[in-house]
């Protein structure tokens, strides 16, 4: 067993036989390539703000404008929720910041693999990194956008209650939901470009069936179960509960429904991605 070669034999052996990887093995591989994720996120953030005059101010400007327009449309024109004890812009921020993240992250995730086809055709790293990084870029914007909410709280002299400890959990759930949707749609989009037409259209409709500009309380009681099937309902109402002093009471049913939906979508997305990851280039 003596080794006369100049370099020791490397220990790690990779078996290539076209069979899908296990969850564990894939997780391991994702971890070993975590630097690629980080660099792709950094790259996209750099590219997004390079050669812009306002630079990072865009991070706050976009959700601020969305809040202003939404307040105008739903609060002023439609006359929703003007009587609430909580300042109206705070209610709207809790709706539009998550919505803005979701409505960007899902198409970004969906288009990520197709947009990186030239990369995945020429080099190997775990493919899930690409949609994950695409969603993570929007997640960074999402987290920064909460600064706006903090400024608004100071402006209105408003102090969130103890429920705020649950705020990170709802944010986490939303990020998981967006990542899962991004993973799933990115694969489907490689094969069926139909979703590239369908998803932006659904998102346009989605804004109106998501309580961004209004609250769940505006929806008649008997429709709540159906309405809560939109997983964003539970997340947005949960965020409002956690940040706005328990607002209209804990939205138990929507939160449970959206947790179940998030879990289900994540499982389907994970399974589908693992099953197709090896043959993504052939699919396209």
């Amino acid at each position: 067993m003596t080794d006369s070669r100049p370099a020791a034999l490397p220990a790690r052996t990779v078996l290539i036989d076209g069979s899908p990887q296990t969850w564990r093995g894939y997780w391991h591989e994702l971890c070993s390539f975590h630097e690629v994720t980080r660099m792709l996120v950094r790259r996209d953030l750099i590219v997004r703000f390079r050669q812009t005059y306002f630079g990072l101010a865009w991070l706050l400007f976009k959700p601020l404008m969305l809040m202003a327009v939404t307040s105008f449309a739903f609060g002023f024109l439609a006359g929703f929720d003007r009587s609430h004890a909580v300042p109206y812009p705070l209610i709207i921020f809790c709706g539009v910041i998550p919505w803005y993240f979701f409505s960007n992250a899902v198409p970004d995730g969906m288009n990520s693999l197709a947009g990186h086809l030239h990369v995945i055709q020429k080099t190997y790293f775990p493919r899930a990194i690409i949609p994950i990084a695409a969603v993570a870029v929007d997640a960074v914007e999402f987290l920064v956008a909460w600064l706006l909410f903090a400024f608004a709280c100071i402006w209105f002299g408003y102090l969130p209650g103890w429920q705020i400890v649950f705020f990170p959990l709802f944010c986490l759930q939303l990020m998981v939901l967006c990542t899962a949707a991004g993973l799933l749609l990115s694969v489907v989009n490689l094969r069926f470009r139909d979703v590239g037409n369908l998803v932006p259209f659904l998102l346009t409709i989605g804004f109106f069936v998501t309580p961004g500009g209004y609250t769940l309380a505006r929806i008649p009681e008997q429709w709540h179960s159906l309405y809560a099937l939109n997983p964003l309902v539970g997340i947005i109402e949960g965020l409002r509960w956690s940040l706005l002093n328990g607002m209209d009471g804990f939205p138990l049913k929507p939160v449970l429904v959206s947790l179940a939906a998030t879990l289900a979508i994540s499982l389907v997305a994970g399974r589908h991605f693992l099953a197709s990851e090896a043959s993504l280039v052939d699919l396209a």
Binding site: T13, L15, D17, Q121
Partner: peptide, 22 residues
Amino acid sequence: KILSRIIPPSQGRARVRGRVAS
């Protein structure tokens, strides 16, 4: 491409030992 894990083989297998730069 198969050895670089860009596309999967339809039959057979390959064992690659160590880090690959494609």
